[in-house]
Amino acid sequence: MTENVLDVLMYLFETAGDDGVPPEPDREGLRDELERAGFRDREIDRALEWLDGLASRRADEVGEPPTERAMRIYGRDECIRMDTNGRGYMMYLEQIGILSAHQRELVIDRLMALDGEEIDVDDIKWVVLMVLFSQPGEETAYARMEDLVFEDRAWITH
């Protein structure tokens, strides 16, 4: 199996989404479930670290909100890993009100914490869903993002 951290996270997210509650907080139980699903120890450890990073950072801890005229300038490493399409998609999500500037920073932090060289728009969509799912009071933004994620995939199943 050639999975990566995002595959493990997506598996957890999709199984948590079935009953609408986050996965069991018992780390050993979670690890056992992931091993039974066929994931390797290295990816399981990295996914659990990624989740710990998400839990430790909240959107309201990022700092002062940017002014209306502020513009996000991506760093060199961010530009290397996230191409123009990805950065444009992040801006689009912010412009249509799915992400706040604080949430955008949390999403970027979690994207950069993923393994792999390139971050594509699909990776961004899934990480945005996971970040919104983890934040209380973001049900509307989550539902709008879920529509965007699954409307793009609808043609695949037909």
Rank of each mutant, 00 (worst) to 15 (best):
M90A: 07
R69T: 15
P65Y: 05
G86L: 00
E78F: 02
Y92V: 06
R87K: 14
E78H: 02
E68C: 08
Q95A: 12
G97S: 09
E78S: 02
T84P: 00
E64L: 09
R72K: 04
I73Q: 05
L93Y: 01
R81L: 06
C79R: 15
E78V: 04
A101E: 11
Y92I: 08
R81Y: 02
G88D: 13
E94F: 02
S100R: 13
Q103N: 05
L99E: 01
D60S: 14
P66H: 01
Y92N: 09
G75S: 15
A70V: 09
C79S: 12
I96R: 15
G75L: 07
H102P: 01
E61M: 14
E64G: 02
G63R: 08
G75T: 11
I98W: 06
A101W: 06
R69M: 14
S100W: 05
E94D: 04
R57C: 04
E64P: 05
I98V: 15
V62C: 03
G86N: 01
Y74I: 02
D77S: 14
P66R: 07
I98G: 04
E78N: 01
P66V: 13
D77E: 15
L93H: 04
G88F: 00
M91T: 06
E68K: 11
P65M: 10
R87D: 09
H102M: 07
M91W: 04
M71E: 14
A101F: 09
I80G: 10
A101R: 10
R72T: 03
D83M: 05
G97W: 05
S100P: 09
E61W: 07
G97M: 08
R58H: 14
V62K: 03
L99G: 01
L93V: 03
R87G: 09
D83A: 11
S100M: 08
M82N: 00
D83C: 04
Q103M: 03
E78D: 09
Y92R: 07
E64N: 09
D60C: 10
P66T: 09
H102A: 12
E64C: 01
L99F: 01
H102R: 12
Q95M: 09
L99S: 00
S100F: 07
H102D: 10
R58L: 13
I96S: 11
R81D: 03
Q103E: 13
T67A: 11
E64W: 08
L99R: 02
Y74G: 04
E68Y: 10
G88Q: 10
A59V: 08
N85Y: 13
R81P: 04
R69W: 14
P65S: 13
G97K: 12
R76A: 08
M90W: 01
G97P: 08
I73W: 02
G88K: 08
G63M: 06
L93A: 03
P66W: 06
A59K: 02
T67G: 15
I96L: 12
Y92C: 06
R76C: 00
A70H: 12
R57G: 03
E68N: 11
D77L: 12
E68S: 13
I96G: 09
E61Y: 06
R87C: 12
G88I: 03
T67K: 07
M71K: 09
I96H: 12
P65C: 05
M90K: 00
P66Q: 08
Y89I: 03
P66F: 02
E78R: 03
R58E: 11
T84H: 06
M90V: 11
Q103G: 04
A70M: 12
Y92G: 05
L93C: 07
